[in-house]
Amino acid sequence: MSAASDPLLDVRGLSLDFGSPRGRIHALRNVSLEVGAGRVVGIVGESGCGKSTLAYSIIGLLAANAEVVGGEIVFSGRNLIGLPDSEMRALRGREMSMIFQDPMTALNPVQTIGTQMLAIQYRDAVPTREKRKRAVEMLVKVGIPDPESRLKAYPHQFSGGMRQRICIAMALLVNPSLLIADEPTTALDATLEVQIVELLKDLQKDMGCSILFVSHHLGTVAELCDDVVVMYAGEVVERGSVRDIFHTPSHPYTEALLECDPGRIREKTRELPTIPGDVPNLIDVPDGCIFRSRCPKAFDRCVREAPAPRRVSGGHEASCHLLDELAEAAP
């Protein structure tokens, strides 16, 4: 899955808890993934599976009740876990940046777009006119018409799609090595979603940055990403290339997710496909396979033993006991 050289981002066995009145919520458990230089990696899964929590862990914007209890987040050769706040702030907005989920609330409503785009360049010791020129050029790249005059406008004077373009422009204005996009198309309609995905593809090719793309929309991930990480209830259950995940899914949860994609429905129906059952309680994580209570293929071993990641082919891995069973049954 990773390039031949060391990956730009290497998350190794990351575990994270949230404190709560009912007990510790084990939100992430032994999560590992890699983002190679110039690669686009998608993270998919149901709502609440830990996708956004993982993204916020990487960029260091966690809530006060969050605690990393294990693992490493290695970015450009540096472990970010335990890094002083001053050093983490130096990385954010320069070497890594983020597009947030809701463009309607991501921008400061009482400041003009120009003020905010100049402010994000505060580290650069260049004249204000140069910063303004950069802002105009970036607005041109993301398709904002008449950028000179739009710098004087306030966020409420833009549509949702335009605001998301501005958020993308601000995130890329510092030319980061890693761009984290946390479901950047969720609040947009289908037409704008296509436009934003195409925009990200073009900008990624032009600038060469790596992208960690969080989404629940499988079609968007298939269109944009090189590699995919599938998460369920705080764990990575499968990872591989887009072709691996969409053509040869090897975990029952991945198969179930793909079956729920409306784009795969071939006949008219009044009921959309769903995955039966409920997500397990992450305060008291059950033994064995985390997906076993909802898995139609579960057997005795799934109750007793948590599956370890098993290589399917190349960079394709899945955590499922069925892979062991198939290997043992093979001649």
Rank of each mutant, 00 (worst) to 15 (best):
T186S: 15
T186R: 14
D189P: 02
A190V: 15
T191H: 07
L192R: 06
E193P: 01
E193T: 15
V194P: 05
Q195H: 11
Q195N: 13
V197K: 05
E198S: 13
L199A: 06
L200N: 01
L200Y: 02
L200A: 04
L200P: 10
D202R: 15
Q204G: 06
Q204R: 12
C209D: 00
S210A: 15
I211M: 15
L212V: 08
F213T: 11
V214P: 03
G219Q: 14
E223N: 14
L224S: 15
L224C: 09
D226A: 04
V228A: 00
V229Q: 07
V230G: 12
A233Y: 06
E235T: 14
E235L: 05
V237N: 03
V237R: 02
R239H: 11
G240L: 03
R243S: 10
D244H: 06
I245T: 12
F246I: 02
F246S: 08
P249H: 09
P252I: 08
A256H: 12
L258F: 09
L258T: 13
C260K: 10
D261H: 07
P262N: 05
I265Q: 14
R270G: 15
L272P: 02
T274Q: 14
P276A: 00
P276V: 02
P276D: 06
G277W: 07
G277H: 14
V279C: 11
V279W: 03
P280M: 08
N281I: 00
N281E: 13
L282V: 01
D284H: 09
G288K: 05
C289W: 08
F291L: 12
R292L: 01
S293K: 07
